[in-house]
Amino acid sequence: MYAPEFEYHRAATVAEAIQLLSSNEDAKLIAGGHSLLPLLKLRLARPSVLVDIGRISELKGITISDGTVRIGALTTHWEIASSHDLEHACGIMAEAAGGIGDTQVRNRGTIGGNVVHADPASDWPTVLTALGAKFNIQGAGGSTRTVEPGDFFVGPLTTTMGEQEVLTSIEAPTLGHHQRAEYAKMAHPASGFAVVGAAVVVTVEGDVCTAARIAVGGLVPVPVRMTSVETALVGKALNQENIAEAASHASNDLQGEILGDFFASAEYRKAMAEVEIRHALFHATEVSHH
């Protein structure tokens, strides 16, 4: 399948990319191309100009310092999955990256491209929401802004990114000694995309949960924080009964639109959200559930 025709420009710097976006109406950025090229082939996107940012070295790499993980937008899922430093600092990110697509998709696909694509069935939005990540964005005239996931994702394939903006990096806090995090997903058997995904970050002191951030994705247009589940968990011992009880509050937080299709109905996905939250909490806390 050929994509529709487009003009091609390659940017050497972020500033040049923004300049190219500003001077070409209907231009789109391409990095690894693993979200955009399929859309082009299906004619779901028809930009007249593609600006290739795939070689901008300032957008690549993982740095960990002062309790913050900073990942350049062009860093591939493979680089994230295979980073030993990241495994120690924020293991849930390495783990989630290793479960995306397949080897070749991970070799080319980038975390920034994934996030700005905002596919409800992808894993990063859910994981980054639970982590309380921050998205660093650069715009015209060298302006920068930082946005949290809740103010970034608007709906399927829609974000608050401006047409002349570039996502430059993603930051997440490193996990402390008392923190445990896990991402559990029910993957579509063919595509590997999340039918339902649940990400949990819990702080455990003694065996009591003192803080929790939980998000689900896959079944909702944008990731949803499970505040009822979080509230039910905090102050409780992390045992099988309390985890199951807390997870049973999931439906309170899923009052908005639930996605469904011929593979998995909305009703089924809603039921599975509770199951995946439970799985993530069991794995995070190593509470036996068999």
Partner: peptide, 9 residues
């Protein structure tokens, strides 16, 4: 690194 050449320009 391996890539799927149908998804690379």
């Amino acid at each position: 690194a391996t890539v799927k050449s149908c998804t690379c320009l």
